[in-house]
Amino acid sequence: MEHLVEQALVAAPHKRLVWQLGKVVRVVPETSRTKTLVLEVPDWPQHQPGQHLDVRLTAEDGYQAQRSYSVGSPPEDKHVAITVERLEDGEVSPYLTDELDIGDELELRGPIGGYFTWQASQGGPLLLVAGGSGVVPLMAMIRHRAAAGREVPARLLYSSRTFEDIIYREELDQLAQDPGLEVFHTLTRSQPEGWAGHRRRIDSTLLEEVAWPSQQQPHIFICGPTRLVEAVATTLTELGHDPARVKTERFGPSGG
């Protein structure tokens, strides 16, 4: 597992991350609880798929709150998109989903994080496992894969509570017309009539069915609530995947 360290050492030198203003140019409702904010950020250094940014909100009396959000757009896009899930009693997410509108500005800095990243040039196969809004950084990879036009075989295993909770559903359907990308949904709480996808939490049988065998050495990225991330990462290691190829990200509090 020396890899973990080697990968860290090849990372590029770092410039100071400064706060800057992004302007909301588009708001896309994704599900009843999530929205995508498309931002125009004049000095955005190109990010790598999987990276995140920090948002800082300032009230009139100077009070501030900061949170992290994954970039969902690929580096090829001229705008930077984040997708935010509204947490009922949250401090920041309801502001982003309910209050912020086209033309508003948002203070942010990034891109941040250089480990949970994938570039098409790294090749594949690519195995992505998401729970809920954990799909956001993985979507950046999927969109980048499509934009880069590389024929890297990729699979997404995506767990949502209900059909309505699936983020980016239509875009995923479209992208999956490319035979190189396979999307597997599982719905853990309820399923619409005639649902042909999976209907349980991601377990070892499901992973064995969907994942490439360890001999093919897929690059693996897992993002979502802690319980899902822990279970999937452990199971994949048990199935023989090299822990150095299993990269994880968790989103925070009870989720994380």
Binding site: L4, T226, V229, L236, V246, G252, P253, S254, G256
Partner: peptide, 12 residues
């Protein structure tokens, strides 16, 4: 936070 979030780059 009252929770105890978990953060790590790979499997446990």
């Amino acid at each position: 936070t009252e929770d105890f979030p978990v953060l790590s780059a790979g499997p446990t």
